[in-house]
């Protein structure tokens, strides 16, 4: 016996999270899903960025560190810091998958 269901209305809710391995930024120790010390809102106002070395920080936090240094090094591995380019398209679910 089968039913036929007709959907009249639906209400979708999505949640997002930064897929950054550690739960907190190593510099400010605040959650990636939250704000760095000078951020007002989580999400787009508090972006998380990756280095080519795969380590992640709040954009504000890593920028403040790099600006205070003559040598641009990752705080975790001390390798030369270079921002990793975001993957466009988003079908891959690799480590740099920023949430939607």
């Amino acid at each position: 016996m089968t039913f036929e269901v007709r959907i009249k209305k639906w209400h979708a809710v999505a949640s997002w999270t930064w897929n950054a391995g550690d739960d907190v930024c190593g510099i400010c120790r605040m959650p990636f899903d939250g704000c760095p010390p000078d951020g007002k809102y989580p999400g787009d106002d508090s972006p998380v960025v990756w280095g080519i070395c795969t380590h992640a920080f709040h954009l504000q936090c890593i920028n403040r560190w790099l600006q205070s240094q003559t040598e641009q090094k990752c705080p975790f591995c001390r390798r030369q810091w270079e921002f990793k380019q975001a993957v466009v398209g988003g079908e891959d679910e690799s480590e740099d998958g920023a949430g939607t």
């Binding site: 400010c28 120790r29 605040m30 010390p37 000078d38």
Partner: peptide
């Protein structure tokens, strides 16, 4: 409440 002070509060909590 500056960035440094907020971080020190986190440090104290972790300790």
């Amino acid at each position: 409440s500056t960035a440094a002070r907020k971080r020190l509060i986190r440090d104290f909590k972790r300790l």
